[in-house]
Structure formats: C-alpha cells, structure tokens
Simulated scan of single mutants.
Amino acid sequence: MSRIPPFIWFILISFLAGWATLPLRKEIQPPEQDLSELDGLGQSVIIGSLGGLRALAADFLWLQTNYYWQQENHGLTETTARAVTRLQPDYPFFWIEASRMIVYDMPVWRFSKDRTAPKTVEKRIRREQAERGLELLTEAAKFVPDSPAIPAEKARIYWTVLDDPDMAQEYYRVAYEKPPHPPLYARLRAVILIDLGRYQEAMRWLTQVLATMDPNSSPAQYSLMESYLYDLRMGQNPREESDDPIPRFSAPMAPPPVAKEGTDS
C-alpha cells in the first residue's frame, strides 16, 4: 500500500482546521475579501477553507517559490509565486517580489546560459516579461490600493525595462501622493522630469513637494530636492556634471541667509 504524500496530509489537515474553527473566526476576524476575482471558484474554495492557516500555507509556498527560483524553473517559480499572492493578497511584499522575479530574473533564464540571444530577441523577451509583471501589479492594486510601493514598482519597470520615462514619472507621482508620501518617489519623479528636459514642470513639482514636506522626516531626500530646485532656478541642470545652461524660467534664487550667532533663526 502506497503512502499518502505529506502535502496531501497538509491540505486535509488545513481543510479540517479551517472548517472546525469557522464559527470562531467569524466572530474574531473582519469580513474576508471577495476571492471571486481570483482564478476560478475552485481555487477560491480551497483558499477560503484554509482560514487562519492561509499565512502558514503562504510561507510554505514562498519557500517552495524560492527553491524553484534557485533552480531557475520558470514555470513553477511563477506558479507558486502567484499562488502566494492569492493566499496573502493584502501583503505588497509578495506581489512586488513575485513581479521582480517575473520581470528581472525570468528573461535571463529564457536567454539560457549557453548562448547569447540576439538583441532583438532579448528585447522582445524582456518586454514580454515586463508586461506580465505589470499585469500582476495591476491586479495587486485591487487588493492593496493604498500601498505606494505598488505604483512605484510599476514606475521602476517602465523606467528601467520598458524605457518609458513618461509613464514612469506618472506612476512615481501616483506613488508619492499616497500616504505616507515617501519622499524618494517625489525625488525620482523630479529626476525623470529633468532628464526629459521638462525643467519648468520639475520646478513646479519640487516647489510643491518641498512646501508640504517636513525637512526632518527625510533630511537627505529633502536636501537633494532642495539642491535640484536651487540649480534649476540658477539655470543649471542638476543632473549634469557640466555647466551647460538650461532655459531659466525664473529669477535666480538667492542663497539662504546665514544665521548669526546669538540670534534666533
């Protein structure tokens, strides 16, 4: 008589535990999310039956995902990573890490280590994988709409993979406007606007951000954006080491006054 695989025991025990604790969970847990948007009713029933063990199942599958990732197994890595996002859809970490595997790692696996893919093929594969990653992040936004990390990750893909800085700056704007308003995303949007030659728009953006930002919340980011704005107002491009002038849109900003000792600033 053949032995029952351990994974089958895990599913059976999880199902029974979820069923047995259902009355208690209804009292102590908030309403569960509607899983109908996931991949079919069958998967929804299985995930729902796990109940409080969904986190445990997600951790188990994430370990499996990392194992398949180390093996460079394209199909199983993506399958298990997507399954984790369905078990724990409220955690941006899983969505973002899954998308990074799809966008940045899997194209390299598809090229294979034994040969160098032609540039046209490499570009096509990278675009295909980037689009799959963006689709996953779009789905993530339905479950974690308040997370600034999701649009920021989309911005990164548009900027570094798809070479679409205009879409990237727009998603960085969306990311920054979500609490807690991470200043890094505001600065990256300014960087892209400057690189695109949209200096006036960059100045307006930096002025808006600095006017509402607490300098003590992120001194490094505040200082960098302040220096960008100063250079732009002086007619210089803060992104270039050379002193090539750029169109000046306002009078140069005077250096801040130096506070004298013994006086209140």
Rank of each mutant, 00 (worst) to 15 (best):
I96W: 02
P180N: 10
P148K: 09
L232R: 06
F94Y: 15
S218M: 07
A168P: 05
P238R: 07
I8Y: 09
L16D: 01
Y104R: 07
L76K: 15
Y222S: 08
D195T: 10
N216H: 13
R82Q: 10
R187D: 06
E240Q: 15
I96L: 12
A83D: 07
G40L: 08
T263Y: 05
V103P: 01
M225S: 08
T212I: 02
W9N: 11
D90M: 12
I8C: 07
F249A: 03
G197S: 00
T160E: 13
A202C: 00
P247N: 03
G48D: 10
I192Q: 08
R25N: 12
T77G: 02
I157L: 07
A202F: 07
A202H: 05
L206G: 03
A254I: 08
I28V: 15
M234F: 02
F94N: 09
E128D: 14
E135Q: 13
A20E: 04
D105Y: 01
T207C: 06
Q200N: 09
R173N: 03
S250P: 00
M253V: 04
Y172C: 03
E241N: 14
M225N: 01
W95G: 05
T77H: 04
P118E: 05
G51I: 11
Q169C: 04
W9M: 05
R132N: 13
D166S: 11
L184C: 04
T79A: 15
R156K: 12
V84S: 04
D214G: 01
A117K: 03
P247I: 01
P89Y: 07
A57L: 00
M253E: 14
E27A: 15
R132M: 11
S44V: 11
R25E: 15
W95A: 00
E177K: 10
K178P: 03
R82K: 14
A175Q: 04
F10S: 06
A83R: 12
E27R: 15
L184H: 03
I157C: 10
D34I: 08
A175P: 00
N216G: 09
P215A: 01
I194A: 06
E97T: 14
L206A: 11
V84N: 05
Y68R: 03
D105M: 02
P182Y: 09
N66I: 09
Q221Y: 00
R82C: 05
Y67T: 13
L229Q: 05
S2V: 12
I47P: 01
A220H: 13
G262Y: 02
L210Y: 00
L193I: 01
G51N: 08
A17H: 10
E170C: 08
Y171T: 00
V84E: 07
S14N: 05
I192E: 08
W69E: 10
P183E: 01
A83I: 09
T138W: 07
F7G: 08
V103Q: 02
I4T: 15
